[in-house]
Measured scan of single mutants.
Amino acid sequence: AEEIWQQSVIGDYLARFKNDRVKALKAMEMTWNNMEKKEKLMWIKKAAED
């Protein structure tokens, strides 16, 4: 689920960090860890469908 979420937001994060992939990935990891369980559930369901 986290991978699907990352694939959907990586472009936004890379743009925000001027294509600094290391910073973008760290920010994504922090965002994922801070997400509410119900927000993650949507992505977990999406992962299950694929």
Results as ranks from 00 to 15, higher is better:
1 A>S: 05
1 A>R: 02
1 A>H: 03
1 A>Y: 04
1 A>I: 04
1 A>M: 07
2 E>Q: 13
2 E>N: 10
2 E>W: 14
2 E>L: 14
2 E>H: 12
2 E>M: 14
2 E>A: 11
2 E>D: 05
3 E>A: 14
3 E>Q: 13
3 E>N: 09
3 E>K: 14
3 E>F: 13
3 E>Y: 14
3 E>G: 09
3 E>D: 10
3 E>V: 13
4 I>N: 07
4 I>H: 08
4 I>V: 10
4 I>G: 04
4 I>D: 03
4 I>Q: 07
5 W>L: 00
5 W>H: 00
5 W>V: 00
5 W>N: 01
6 Q>A: 13
6 Q>S: 09
6 Q>N: 07
6 Q>H: 06
6 Q>M: 13
6 Q>D: 01
6 Q>R: 13
7 Q>R: 13
7 Q>D: 09
7 Q>S: 10
8 S>F: 11
8 S>K: 05
8 S>H: 13
9 V>W: 03
9 V>F: 04
9 V>D: 00
9 V>H: 05
9 V>M: 06
9 V>C: 05
10 I>F: 10
10 I>R: 03
10 I>M: 11
10 I>P: 00
10 I>S: 04
10 I>V: 05
11 G>C: 14
11 G>M: 12
11 G>Y: 09
11 G>L: 15
11 G>P: 04
11 G>I: 13
12 D>V: 07
12 D>S: 10
12 D>W: 08
12 D>G: 08
12 D>T: 06
12 D>A: 08
12 D>I: 10
12 D>F: 08
13 Y>E: 01
13 Y>M: 03
13 Y>W: 04
13 Y>V: 03
13 Y>L: 03
13 Y>R: 00
13 Y>P: 00
13 Y>C: 03
13 Y>Q: 01
13 Y>T: 02
14 L>T: 03
14 L>K: 02
14 L>W: 02
15 A>H: 10
15 A>L: 13
16 R>N: 06
16 R>I: 11
16 R>W: 07
16 R>S: 06
16 R>F: 11
16 R>H: 09
16 R>G: 04
17 F>Q: 02
17 F>K: 01
17 F>W: 06
17 F>E: 04
17 F>Y: 11
17 F>T: 04
17 F>D: 02
18 K>I: 05
18 K>Y: 12
18 K>L: 10
18 K>R: 09
18 K>F: 12
18 K>C: 12
19 N>Y: 09
19 N>I: 02
19 N>W: 08
20 D>G: 01
20 D>N: 07
20 D>Q: 03
20 D>F: 02
20 D>W: 02
20 D>S: 04
20 D>M: 02
20 D>C: 04
20 D>I: 03
21 R>A: 12
21 R>V: 13
21 R>T: 11
21 R>S: 08
21 R>G: 07
21 R>W: 14
21 R>I: 15
22 V>S: 12
22 V>H: 08
22 V>K: 09
22 V>C: 13
23 K>L: 14
23 K>N: 08
23 K>M: 13
23 K>F: 04
24 A>Q: 01
24 A>S: 04
24 A>Y: 01
24 A>K: 00
24 A>M: 07
24 A>N: 00
25 L>A: 09
25 L>M: 12
25 L>C: 12
25 L>S: 06
25 L>N: 07
25 L>G: 06
25 L>W: 07
26 K>W: 07
26 K>A: 13
26 K>I: 10
26 K>Y: 08
26 K>S: 09
26 K>G: 07
26 K>Q: 14
27 A>W: 07
27 A>G: 04
27 A>Y: 06
27 A>H: 06
28 M>G: 00
28 M>A: 03
28 M>L: 06
28 M>D: 00
28 M>W: 00
28 M>Y: 01
28 M>F: 01
29 E>H: 08
29 E>Y: 05
29 E>V: 07
29 E>K: 09
29 E>C: 05
29 E>D: 08
29 E>F: 06
29 E>N: 08
30 M>D: 15
30 M>K: 10
30 M>R: 08
30 M>G: 07
30 M>V: 15
30 M>C: 10
30 M>S: 10
30 M>T: 11
31 T>Q: 09
31 T>W: 05
31 T>C: 06
31 T>M: 06
31 T>N: 06
31 T>L: 06
32 W>D: 00
32 W>L: 00
32 W>Q: 00
32 W>K: 00
32 W>H: 01
32 W>R: 00
32 W>N: 00
33 N>W: 06
33 N>I: 10
33 N>L: 11
33 N>P: 02
34 N>I: 05
34 N>G: 08
34 N>D: 09
34 N>C: 08
34 N>Q: 08
34 N>L: 07
35 M>V: 01
35 M>W: 02
35 M>A: 01
35 M>C: 02
35 M>N: 01
35 M>Q: 01
36 E>S: 15
36 E>N: 11
36 E>L: 04
36 E>Q: 09
36 E>G: 13
37 K>S: 14
37 K>C: 15
37 K>V: 15
37 K>A: 15
37 K>G: 13
37 K>P: 15
37 K>H: 15
37 K>E: 15
38 K>H: 15
38 K>D: 15
38 K>L: 11
38 K>M: 10
38 K>E: 15
38 K>P: 08
38 K>I: 10
39 E>Q: 05
39 E>A: 04
39 E>G: 02
39 E>T: 04
39 E>I: 04
39 E>W: 04
40 K>R: 05
40 K>Q: 05
40 K>W: 02
40 K>L: 04
40 K>T: 02
40 K>M: 03
40 K>N: 02
40 K>V: 03
41 L>R: 04
41 L>F: 07
41 L>H: 06
41 L>C: 14
41 L>D: 15
41 L>W: 06
42 M>W: 12
42 M>H: 15
42 M>Q: 14
42 M>A: 13
42 M>I: 15
42 M>V: 13
42 M>N: 12
42 M>R: 15
43 W>N: 02
43 W>S: 02
43 W>P: 03
43 W>I: 03
43 W>G: 03
43 W>Q: 03
43 W>F: 04
44 I>Y: 11
44 I>E: 15
44 I>D: 07
44 I>A: 11
44 I>P: 03
45 K>F: 06
45 K>G: 09
45 K>S: 13
45 K>I: 13
45 K>C: 13
45 K>T: 15
46 K>Q: 07
46 K>L: 13
46 K>N: 05
46 K>W: 07
46 K>Y: 07
46 K>G: 04
46 K>I: 11
46 K>D: 04
47 A>D: 05
47 A>V: 06
47 A>N: 04
47 A>F: 11
47 A>S: 06
48 A>L: 15
48 A>R: 11
48 A>I: 13
48 A>D: 07
48 A>E: 13
48 A>Q: 13
48 A>K: 12
49 E>S: 08
49 E>G: 12
49 E>Q: 09
49 E>N: 10
49 E>I: 09
50 D>L: 15
50 D>V: 15
50 D>I: 15
50 D>H: 15
50 D>R: 15
50 D>S: 14
50 D>Q: 15
50 D>E: 14
50 D>W: 05
